[in-house]
Structure formats: structure tokens, C-alpha cells
Design a protein around this nucleic acid. Structure first.
Length: 650
DNA sequence: CGGTACGTTGATAGG
DNA sequence: TCCTATCAACGTACC
């Protein structure tokens, strides 16, 4: 029998410590061992990845590569620039590979990709070895122990997890690795199609990373930011070395580790932030989640200090349980988990700016309908931190610059965009997070957006975050706002969260004018709030109540074919303008993407929104005209309704 | 079936 | 500063 010639395919596990898959690969005692990374065009062009996450990835790859070289001078992370689906079959042959080893990835795209790779490996006579290592428990086994259903609450995870088994103690890092074999690349490179490149807007020039299979110097090196055309702004850097140092620092502080309660940490803290900043390392696998778990758990078990150690779900280990919960939901629901349409667990709410859907594939296309110009403006102002609400704007600017905001900050901006302000689809917000977060994790992002928008996991929509009151719990003087919205740095504390209330003299004294709608950045000017929050909150609350009463889910035939509109017609209250959109879903067709450009968003190239460039559709229906009028009237009535109701009750 | 307790992180008024 | 009840009210688990 031939001696094992093993490709170890790094993907979600850029580390040497505690990697079950890496251990399995080395336990084969390979004659040749190639640690590789395939530069996947799906990630480069079709996923939304902003400059700061690119920087974090390249950091992580370089650090791993150096660590591999320390174990064997001849080895490194060999980065090959081609789609794995086309590349790996060629490598199997050219390098006489006997085994392919990788860590299990339950993301919807990854499952499709890996199934294809496994078919190719079978055809080539290559044995595939897969190990779970990304979560506390194998997500598929977790689902199995939860009776084959999506894990939708933390108690379900706490019940099903132990049935899968005890969380394994971390494995040691390898102390040596075998030599790589010869690496002939005597085959054609399949150069990927760039378009559509969802990251084109953020690049300074076109992507150049596919110039050669082994990179511009033929040395299998990690691409540079320059090749990709990005400039990062974040100081949060990647790599296993940094991850382990961060973890050591957390663990060294026994009190912090043992007493940690997430809801009590301050979203307004910066330098240092109130939470661990380890999430991006979990995402790239530069830190093992099980190692994190046990290092924390050992501190908790031995804690004899003041107070009682905190417990899940608020404790540090509780945070990891949530991560496994979202992974379990995604493992059970697949592609549908990342969208409303066809998602059996996601409530249908007639949000503005709904996703366009390819009904053949039952997947969203990445584009969206502009059903309301007003909502679209609100969305853009939210994204770019110009809503006129300093708390929201500070968070969104911190997110763009640093790629990270505190969990409760994410709650604040997510609630504001969806059920507590703009009534815009959670999918729009999730896309912005996907692009800008350095710790973006598909499962957690989709899950958390569903949670905050009260479409799944959480239903108490009447608990609404105020952009004025909420941050004052931690930061009365608005130090956080002054840091990220420097226009307001000198404003008196009593106006810091509501600058529109500052008298002209106070504005002048602070060197800022509260004026305009934030169309463009102007020295010394901060926009007026884009709406009356109390009024919007009431309208949204009413819309949520109505939508909950109707009780549709994303996989309901009425949602899919557009006939849901009839259910909202008569008693429609609040923001059901969603139904004015000239969406072809109403005809039940899969033609949502096909209709020609026209309509009101044809001039809307303000949609710098990645796949945006939403081509609208012409042709308002009679119904929608009627609807628009009705809604306008209703809006006016409701603005005052909230106040009246309250006063009457008192 | 009915009632009740609970659910990681709301806002507000009042003690 | 910290605690409580109220606001108007969600779904789920469990007795």
C-alpha cells in the first residue's frame, strides 16, 4: 500500500493548537504533507468582505505560515490561487495525493462546495478525512440530539449538547510536521470571472490576486492587501499568536473571567473595550472554541474570589453556547437560514427594502427592491453614520473604521434599522455587518439579526432600544459619541444624545451646526435627526403587532407567491407600505430579477450598496396607489395616537 | 385545556 | 446607586 501523501486543506481553522483535523492528518504519518489554502473566488468576489476583514485574514494566514515553517523549514502555508472545485482535482493528480484532510464546515455554501470536492476525491481515488473542530459540539450531531430540529434557544443547546458528549479538552499543537512533496503546477490555471465582484466598491483598483497560481513571485505566498486593492483602517489584527496572547490576558484576570456578565458590560467602552475581542479569532479559527471554553471553565471551577462565578447564558462560556446554537440552526436549515424567504423559522414581516429572490434556487440574489425611497434614504444614512442620532452614528462609524462594535451596540443599531425605527429588512443590515465586521460569522450574523428584528429566536418586540436613553445607562457624558462623532466633541453633555435640542448658542459654542439631512460631509455640521423616534417607534410597534397577528413564516406559500398582501390589506396598521412595491412576487413568478430597469430607483445609484445597483421595476399597480394614500393618512394619525393613548391611560 | 414561569442585555417612575 | 413595578404583551415549556 502506498504511503500517505496528504493535503491538509486549511479553511476555518488557521491554527496549530487544538485542531482535531490537523491531528488526524498527522496521525496518518504522511510521506508527503502539504498544508494548503485555496484562494476561493467565492470568498474573494461573491462574499461581502471589507478591507478590515481582509487584513485580519491575511494576518492569520501569514502567522500560521510562519508557525508551520518553525516546525519544518521546508514547509509553510502553501497558498494557491484558484477555486478549490477546479484546483483540487488537478492537485490530486499532479501531486499523487492519497488523502485530503480538512475541518468540517457547516456553512451553506461550504457544504455545497465540500460535497463537490468529495465527489471529485472519490473519482480520483483520494480518501477524504473530515473532523469537527469549529464548535463546542459537531453541529450536525447537536441537531440530531435535538430531534433533528434547528436549535432555537439556549436551553435546547444545554439539553442536546451533553447528549452529543462532553466537550473535548484541547489537543496539543504538533511539534513537527513532515516535508511537503514535490509541487508541480504543470496545468492551466482556471482564472475566475471577477464579475460580479461584491467588493468592487471598496477596492482602489481591480483585484489582482489571480495573476498566477503560486502568486506573483511563484512562492505560494499569502496575497498582499495591495494585490487586492484594499487599505485597512482597523487596529484589530489577526493570527494565532495574537489570539493566544489575548486569551492569556483574559484568563490571567480571574475576576473578569469568572464574574463576566455580558449584559452588564458597557457598549460605550473603548480603549479598552468591555468584552474580549476574541470573536474574530473564533471566526478564522486562530483560536479554538473548545480551548477558550476549557480555559474559562477551569478558572470558574477554581474561583474562590469575591462573589459567585457567573453562569450561562450571561457568562463567558454562555456566549459560546449561543454560537453553537446559531451553528445548529444553520446546520439544520441550510441556505434558508440566511434569509427570510423559504425560511421555515423566520417570521414574515413586510419590511421595506426586501431581498430579491431567485425562486428556482430558493435563494436571495443579493439585490433588493426599493419599495420606499424614504426607507432607502434612511438605510443609507444608517449605514454611513449620518442618521442624526449620535449614538447610532457613533456605532456605525466605529463599525466601519474598526470592524468591531460591542454586542449591545449591535443590538442598538439593529433594532433601530428594523423594528425600532426604519422598518427596513434585517437582511439589509446583515449585509452591512457581513461586509464590515472582522468577526462576521454567517450563522451568528443571520441569527442575531433575526433575534433583534424579532423574526426568530426572540419575540418581545415591545422591548425597544432608545437611541437616547439606552447609552446613558453607561455613558452619561457621551464620551463614546465624542470619540466617534468628533463634530459633537465639544457639545454640552445634556445635548450629546439629542443635539437637535441644543439652542443655537450652545451649538455655536461647541463649534457645530445641527442642520441638513446628512447628504454630504461638511465641516462643523451634524445632521438633524432623520425622523421623530417616538413616532417611528409607535408605527413600527403597530406594524409588528399586525405582522405577528397575521403570523406568516418565510416558507409560507403566501409569502413566496406574494399573496400575503391580501392578509395585510383591510386592518392594515402602520408601515405596511411594503406592499406598494412593484414586486413581481405578487404574480408568483421567479422573475423578480428579470424585469427591466425603470421606476423610481433607476436614478438610485446612491445604492453604492455592493450588489445593490438595484434595478427596479416599473408599473405600480392600482392596489399600490391606493395603499400609498392610505398609509400616508394612517401615518399622520398614528404619530399622535401613541401620545394620546398614553395620556388617556394615565 | 388553562395557568404560570421563564426567556442573556427596554424604558420609566418611584422607593 | 440599586432595586421594584408597570407598561402592554411575544412564544414556549411544563405542570
Amino acid at each position: 500500500m502506498a504511503k500517505p501523501r496528504v493535503i491538509y486543506w486549511f479553511r476555518t481553522d488557521l491554527r496549530l493548537h487544538d485542531s482535531p483535523a490537523l491531528k488526524a492528518a498527522l496521525d496518518l504519518h504522511p510521506e508527503a504533507f502539504w498544508p494548503i489554502w485555496t484562494w476561493d473566488p467565492h470568498y474573494v468576489y461573491r462574499a461581502r468582505v471589507g478591507p478590515n476583514r481582509w487584513q485580519f485574514l491575511l494576518d492569520s494566514q501569514r502567522d500560521l505560515s510562519e508557525s508551520l515553517t518553525k516546525l519544518n523549514q521546508k514547509s509553510k502555508l502553501f497558498l494557491i490561487r484558484e477555486s478549490p472545485q477546479t484546483l483540487l482535482p488537478k492537485l490530486f493528480k499532479a501531486w499523487k495525493v492519497t488523502h485530503l484532510v480538512f475541518e468540517k464546515d457547516t456553512d451553506a455554501y461550504a457544504r455545497d462546495r465540500d460535497a463537490e470536492i468529495m465527489r471529485a476525491a472519490k473519482a480520483a481515488g483520494v480518501e477524504v478525512v473530515i473532523r469537527s473542530g469549529r464548535t463546542l459540539w459537531d453541529s450536525d450531531l447537536l441537531v440530531e440530539q435535538h430531534h433533528g430540529k434547528a436549535t432555537m434557544s439556549i436551553s435546547q443547546v444545554q439539553a442536546a449538547g451533553p447528549k452529543v458528549g462532553a466537550i473535548p479538552r484541547p489537543l496539543a499543537a504538533p511539534t513537527k510536521i513532515p516535508d511537503p512533496g514535490e509541487m508541480p503546477l504543470e496545468f492551466e490555471q482556471d482564472v475566475p470571472e471577477q464579475a460580479p465582484d461584491l467588493n468592487a466598491q471598496a477596492r482602489e483598483h481591480g483585484d489582482r490576486s489571480y495573476a498566477q497560481l503560486a502568486g506573483p513571485h511563484g512562492d505560494f505566498a499569502v496575497p498582499s492587501m495591495e494585490e487586492l486593492g484594499f487599505t485597512a483602517t482597523s487596529l484589530h489584527r489577526g493570527g494565532e499568536t495574537i489570539a493566544r496572547k489575548l486569551l492569556d490576558d483574559v484568563i490571567a484576570n480571574e475576576e473578569y473571567t469568572a464574574l463576566f456578565e455580558k449584559p452588564k458590560t458597557a457598549p460605550t467602552d473603548f480603549e479598552p473595550q468591555a468584552t474580549t475581542l476574541l470573536s474574530p479569532h473564533l471566526h478564522f479559527g486562530t483560536l479554538s472554541v473548545r480551548e477558550f471554553y476549557w480555559r474559562v471553565q477551569d478558572v470558574v471551577d477554581n474561583y474562590r474570589g469575591k462573589g459567585k462565578a457567573s453562569q450561562p447564558p450571561v457568562s463567558l462560556t454562555g456566549q459560546l453556547l449561543f454560537r453553537d446554537m446559531y451553528f445548529g440552526a444553520q446546520a439544520a436549515l441550510g441556505h434558508a437560514f440566511g434569509q427570510t424567504m423559504y425560511n421555515s423559522h423566520c417570521r414574515f414581516i413586510p419590511w421595506h427594502l426586501p431581498s430579491k429572490v431567485d425562486h428556482e434556487r430558493k435563494q436571495v440574489t443579493g439585490e433588493y427592491h426599493i419599495d420606499s425611497d424614504e426607507a432607502h434614504v434612511w438605510f443609507q444614512r444608517w449605514k454611513w453614520g449620518r442618521t442624526g442620532f449620535p449614538w447610532i452614528d457613533a456605532l456605525m462609524r466605529q463599525l466601519r473604521q474598526e470592524g468591531w462594535i460591542h454586542h449591545l451596540g449591535r443590538h442598538a443599531v439593529a433594532c433601530f434599522l428594523t423594528r425600532g425605527g426604519c422598518y427596513v429588512s434585517w437582511e439589509r443590515g446583515a449585509e452591512v455587518f457581513e461586509e464590515w465586521l472582522i468577526d462576521h460569522e454567517t450563522a451568528c450574523n443571520a441569527g442575531n439579526w433575526q433575534w433583534l428584528s424579532c423574526t426568530a429566536f426572540f419575540a418581545q418586540f415591545y422591548r425597544c432600544y432608545s437611541p437616547v436613553a439606552f447609552p446613558q445607562k453607561w455613558d452619561k457624558d457621551g464620551v463614546f459619541v465624542r470619540r466617534y462623532v468628533p463634530e459633537l466633541a465639544a457639545l454640552d453633555s445634556k445635548y450629546i444624545y439629542e443635539p437637535w435640542k441644543a439652542p443655537i448658542q450652545d451649538q455655536r459654542k461647541a463649534g457645530v451646526r445641527i442642520s441638513g439631512a446628512g447628504e454630504k460631509e461638511e465641516e462643523g455640521v451634524y445632521p438633524k435627526p432623520m425622523f421623530d423616534f417616538a413616532e417611528r417607534r409607535a408605527i413600527c410597534l403597530d406594524g409588528m403587532k399586525k405582522a405577528y397577528h397575521v403570523g406568516l413564516y418565510g416558507d409560507d406559500p403566501k409569502v413566496v407567491d406574494g399573496s400575503w398582501r391580501q392578509l395585510f390589506d383591510d386592518a392594515a396598521e402602520g408601515p405596511t407600505e411594503g406592499k406598494t412595491f412593484e414586486d413581481a412576487m405578487g404574480e408568483g413568478g421567479a422573475m423578480t430579477v428579470k424585469k427591466g430597469p425603470a421606476g423610481r430607483d433607476s436614478n438610485g445609484d446612491a445604492v453604492e450598496e455592493t450588489a445593490g445597483r438595484t434595478k427596479g421595476k416599473g408599473g405600480e399597480t392600482k392596489t399600490s396607489d391606493r395603499r400609498t394614500t392610505a398609509v400616508t393618512k394612517r401615518k399622520a394619525a398614528q404619530g399622535t395616537l401613541d401620545g394620546h393613548v398614553k395620556k388617556m391611560k394615565k
